[in-house]
């Protein structure tokens, strides 16, 4: 499960730290282990799926899987539209929750395919999803805030 890519991201996380500007900030906790992540998103232009993810900044406390997964999310989601980011997220979620039965698409998931091994350890799936689902929540809040 501990692919070199995961350990690299764990030791040298990409995009770590909370930055301005941002439209929404969320705090997610994994209550079974106490891992925590705070995620901020900064979106620009467009509505809904057309908006662009300008930044995903975060501060996290947790295991190598949750830390590295959030770092990879930063790499894969920033610079894309919300629609593209959500498609990537869906593919990632399907892979880690797939119990090893979902063949990951390397073109979509890039470095995130390293987390395919997590699917064999159901107890760790939450770790791999913590930062990603926090991002999804933050986008939803940012867009709800923007439209109201």
């Amino acid at each position: 499960m501990y692919q070199e890519i995961i350990l690299d991201h764990y030791r040298n996380p990409h995009g770590r730290g909370l930055r301005d500007p941002f439209e929404a900030e969320v705090h997610h906790v994994n209550p079974t282990c106490g891992d925590e992540v705070t995620v901020r998103v900064h979106l620009s232009g467009g509505e809904g799926r057309d908006a662009k993810v300008e930044d995903l900044s975060y501060d996290a406390l947790g295991c190598s899987i949750s830390q590295a997964a959030t770092s990879v999310a930063h790499d894969l989601l920033v610079g894309h539209t919300v629609g593209e980011a959500f498609d990537t997220l869906d593919a990632y979620q399907a892979m880690v929750q797939g119990r090893g039965k979902v063949e990951p698409d390397e073109d979509v998931l890039d470095d995130a395919v390293a987390f395919a091994g997590v699917a064999a350890y159901p107890a760790r799936v939450k770790c791999a999803l913590l930062g990603w689902l926090a991002f999804k929540d933050a986008v939803a809040q940012a867009q709800a805030g923007g439209s109201s």
């Binding site: 499960m1 501990y2 079974t32 282990c33 106490g34 891992d35 947790g62 295991c63 190598s64 899987i65 350890y121 760790r124 770790c127």
Partner: peptide
């Protein structure tokens, strides 16, 4: 080493230990 990561290595050796806050969060 985060406890989750340590327990993963232990688990790969067949060792079952508990990790987390063990339902005693204020104590941790």
């Amino acid at each position: 080493i985060h406890p989750h990561d340590a327990s993963q290595v232990l688990d790969d050796s067949g060792i079952a230990v508990r990790v987390g806050h063990h339902c005693a969060w204020p104590l941790h």
